[in-house]
Design a binder for these strands. Sequence first.
DNA 1: ATGGCCGAGATCCTCGGA
Length: 258
Amino acid sequence: MKISSWNVNSVRARIINLIGYLKSSRPDILMIQEIKTEEKNFPFNDFKNLGYKSHVFGQKSYNGVAFLSKININKVNLEFIKDENNQSRIIVGDIKNKSQLIKLINIYVPNGNPIGTKKYEYKKNWYNSFTKKIKNTLIKNENIIIGGDFNVIPEEIDVYDYKKYENDALFKLEIRKKYRELINLGFHDIYRYFKKDKQEFTFWDYMAGAWQKNHGMRIDHFLVSTNLLTSIKNINIDKKPRSKIKPSDHVPIELILN
DNA sequence: ATGGCCGAGATCCTCGGA
């Protein structure tokens, strides 16, 4: 089974690229973030035509997350955590893989910049409530996959020039510690688990030729609970969509399960 | 060293993103 995650930066602006990706990569489930539209304007039929059912937590203009899936997703939940700003940033559901029940969690964590503002506090609060909820969820089900745009650069190797980001909400130590606290509940950053010393990115800014210069960062992640680790076969960052016409600034990451 | 790009929604600019 292949589960992909992609911050598409508007589902409607990206529809051609999305269809192309689904046709060539054929994930069983695609978790998308920053759909930037309400459910009533979501392109359900484009995905249905390719065999995908959509579960949408929309929002006008900003944020918004969704599952596109060829397999059943049960107990879809848009209220896994209470969002203090009522933003659409998380969608949760249950899937089955070879008789294992897995809780699948698709997140779009607040950016948090600039630091020292209420946006930064919002990001910290978001991580605090998310980690607390995950801690409780682990007691009930030890099979958890969290994927999405975490807006965290985990380590120095995960950005083209870490010194530029030490006072940025994506790399500031305080935020990296929040990410570390989540992992320490019993998760693995699957990309880093499989590729110990490799430098690859999932995001390149639209500005200043960042893509051409490979000025990127790794901020989209899959965290898998320890219990599920032996069920994970591989992980891959698919950089091809970043070279297309009208690309998202993020690329898909693909988790392969046995 | 600096500034540069997109998308949405309501105009011809602002906000948000990372």
